[in-house]
């Protein structure tokens, strides 16, 4: 049995089971540690102000990063998240098909799917393939129109790889030269794992390093396997922010701002 079969047929259920257990475990800690206490008198603010503060709570760290941590904004927020992982994970056509297979309602997003390339729906960039059309290239027709030039798997994956690599390299002097306590061993593990997923996904899409079926299956298997490792580690690592910590933290912050009447 190859890595592909193992990842697709053997690992899937245990991955979901460990993920589910981890999420329940983590959330239950929040539930059990909840303490009801007396509240201060809330300041009165209008509903419009509350809506503004709710939106602001989600945005002000990004605005702060644009103003004061431009490198973090470009690499961490812009490349890695906004133009990298988020659209690739949720809207790349292959991934939309995968999500829809396991969760059919997800298929509603199919019209928004991002192609792997701006110029062809088949192998591109490094693939030895020239589309046969009246023009030398025919652009892929998606709902994103001209934005497809950016919103395609090739460009987004490369941006994500650049962002992830930069974050990884940035942490090395932080950990070993400046000896920053906040740079943890787990950060390197998480970023290396992410990089492995991105690179293996990119290579599998382009049938690299060679076009034979066994290599392709191995690379795709590696992509799925590393993604499963991420999913099963997600509740126990910093990736948890994606499903809970970010949302909880920002909603709590907005609640605190409402209370204090800011």
């Amino acid at each position: 049995m190859g890595l592909y079969e193992f990842a697709v047929y053997d690992m899937f259920v245990p991955t979901i089971a460990i993920f589910a257990f981890g999420i329940v475990y983590r959330l239950s800690r929040y539930v059990f540690l909840y303490k009801r206490t007396a509240q201060p008198v809330w300041r009165r603010t209008s509903i419009f102000r509350k809506i503004y503060l709710l939106i602001d709570a989600f945005l002000h760290a990004i605005v702060g990063a644009i103003k004061r941590s431009k490198v973090t904004f470009v690499s961490g927020i812009f490349l890695l998240h906004f133009f990298g992982v988020i659209p690739v994970l949720f809207l790349l056509s292959h991934h939309v098909a995968w999500w829809s297979y396991y969760f059919p309602p997800y298929g509603i997003l199919k019209p928004l799917a991002i192609p792997t390339s701006a110029t062809s729906s088949t192998l591109t960039v490094t693939a030895p393939f020239t589309p046969v059309t009246g023009m030398s290239y025919s652009f892929v027709n998606t709902v994103w129109g001209p934005l497809t030039v950016i919103l395609n798997g090739d460009v987004l994956a490369i941006l994500a790889i650049i962002g992830t690599t930069f974050k990884l390299l940035e942490k090395i002097p932080g950990k070993f030269k400046e000896k920053l306590a906040r740079v943890r061993l787990g950060d390197f593990v998480a970023l290396l794992l992410l990089l492995a997923i991105l690179i293996s996904g990119y290579m599998a899409t382009h049938h690299l390093p060679s076009g034979d079926i066994e290599t392709y299956k191995f690379m795709l298997g590696l992509h799925i396997f590393t993604a499963e490792i991420l999913v099963l580690l997600l509740p126990f690592t910093k990736f948890f922010h994606f499903v809970f910590s970010f949302w909880y933290g920002k909603l709590h912050e907005a609640y605190d701002l409402w209370r204090r009447g800011l």
């Binding site: 929040y30 909840y34 303490k35 910590s245 933290g249 709590h252």
Partner: peptide, 14 residues
């Protein structure tokens, strides 16, 4: 409490 737990567990070192 649960809020402090969030403060303790959620830093991603950005």
């Amino acid at each position: 409490d649960s809020v402090t737990l969030h403060f303790l567990e959620s830093c991603v070192s950005c």
